[in-house]
Design a protein around this nucleic acid. Structure first.
Lengths: 125, 125
DNA sequence: TCGATAGTTCAATAAACATTGAACATAGGA
DNA sequence: TCCTATGTTCAATGTTTATTGAACTATCGA
């Protein structure tokens, strides 16, 4: 369990996979929450998303988000810290992530899982 | 068959449905080809996409693209003319369509269905 | 060493999806 | 009026997807 999971290289990131990942409401909410948090700290733990779904379902969505290159997981003890791969996304698909996040923000009240994304106070090593 | 099919209003267009539609390679190619064609004429017929798949499969994808609000179908005789709902998309999700189209153009050589989209000469009523 | 915590993996299930061909509907031209 | 061209709809098929709970693994702290 301690092995750090597989991530695609920047060049391996594919547009259809990224769009498909973002089309799921739970995954969009995860990405949105990561983006919100970016202003404060670039990383969040799995448990910070527990409002969105159960543990095993979240693990499933995290794996998809990793596989498509949207986010990166760093293993530290029993925790996994997630962050958006913003630079890689921007390099591959300029403006795409911001357009999606902006659209999501604009529709936050219509996307059921988004409003629950408050900023999480950060004080962890 | 002459009834013009259902289209969502601008306000009914939903982000997850739009992203899901664009995540399919065939539908992305349809949208891409419509966007290419836009410089010349805003409309294309179903049969202009025959390189992408068979008739009935295309009808299936056209229906999805209509349902999510990405394109509009106008019935004229036995033909259907399709066009991108650019203004509506831009109003709902500013910059999104262009970001996706730009990303697709950048990856055109990696998206198998895109290179076959040449400009179609236009001379129809 | 033991127990609690954090998260993954697996198996099972139901729903959604893409694809195909056949049948159908409609309009236009010979 | 009949034939053809254009597209849609339907049924059937196989695949992928999301979701759930249970079992499992690994790490940390008491």
């Amino acid at each position: 369990m301690s092995r750090t999971p597989h991530h695609p290289t920047r060049e391996q990131i594919e547009l259809p996979m990224v769009l498909d990942c973002l089309s799921d409401p739970i995954r969009l909410a995860i990405v949105y929450q990561l983006a919100q948090q970016e202003r404060v700290s670039s990383e969040l733990r799995c448990s910070d998303f527990s409002a969105l779904s159960g543990k095993s379902n979240l693990a499933y969505h995290f794996a998809k988000l990793r596989d498509c290159g949207l986010m990166q997981t760093r293993v530290a003890g029993t925790n996994r810290f997630m962050r958006l791969r913003r630079e890689d996304l921007e390099a591959r698909f300029p403006g795409l992530l911001d357009a999606v996040l902006g659209s999501a923000a604009k529709d936050a009240d219509r996307l059921p899982l988004l409003p629950e994304c408050e900023l999480v106070e950060v004080d962890r090593k």
